[in-house]
């Protein structure tokens, strides 16, 4: 699910369209915090894709926690 990039950051290895997996990960994450409404992209609220600690990168996102 995760890989470490050359900057030592934790990258979600399934990309930007793994909706169910992003929900599954967020469901057990103690750091999850919902981002501003304007930045939400997943219909399922509790998803890594909606988390304020995700930083979008071209192919996926980096988890900042």
């Amino acid at each position: 699910m995760w890989k470490i990039n050359d900057k030592g950051e934790k990258v979600f290895s399934l990309g930007k369209e793994a909706w169910q997996e992003a929900v599954a990960v967020a469901s057990v994450c103690t750091y999850f915090s919902l981002d501003d409404d304007d930045e939400l992209v997943s219909e399922e609220e509790r998803s890594c894709y909606n988390c304020r600690y995700r930083r979008w990168i071209p192919e996926s996102f980096v988890c900042l926690k």
């Binding site: 981002d35 930045e39 930083r55 990168i57 071209p58 900042l64």
Partner: peptide
């Protein structure tokens, strides 16, 4: 969204 741009999370 690009590695050379130092945005916070979504630019």
């Amino acid at each position: 969204v690009h590695p050379d741009i130092p945005y916070t999370s979504h630019n």
